[in-house]
Amino acid sequence: MSRRVMLVEDEPNITEAIRFLLIRDGWEVETHADGTDAVEVISSAKPDLVILDVMLPGKSGMEILTDLRARDDLKGLPVLMLTARGQSRDRDMAEKAGVSRFMTKPFSNSEVLTAVRDLHAQATQT
């Protein structure tokens, strides 16, 4: 079974770090740095899991999440959200929008890996 992760993040250094971690853990990683067409990219790539930044150029992570959840084919896609604006308001909004897991930057690498593994396992079990 496939272990493909789509990483939507505009900060190149963070993208590189997460990519490094996931590849070392045996994941296929695709990256995308713009919010504007993120939904289409995800839709066509059909990853098993999405890691989504909140502050993206063009379209915010919140909007992308809402759009994903509105589509039948992407409703159940596990989404791990990362944000640098560590405010509880953002967590509430994300949970309302249907986020699978919400993490605040800076994160510990092991946490991210654990979260990705857990979400993937949950998704494949159901």
Binding site: E11, N13, A17, A84, R85, F107, N109, S110
Partner: peptide, 20 residues
């Protein structure tokens, strides 16, 4: 919120790569 974001972003990279 902006300041938080601007500070956390480089910190995220620093933390991630130093852990790596």
């Amino acid at each position: 919120s902006q300041v938080s974001h601007e500070l956390r972003t480089p910190m995220t990279s620093i933390r991630a790569f130093s852990e790596i």
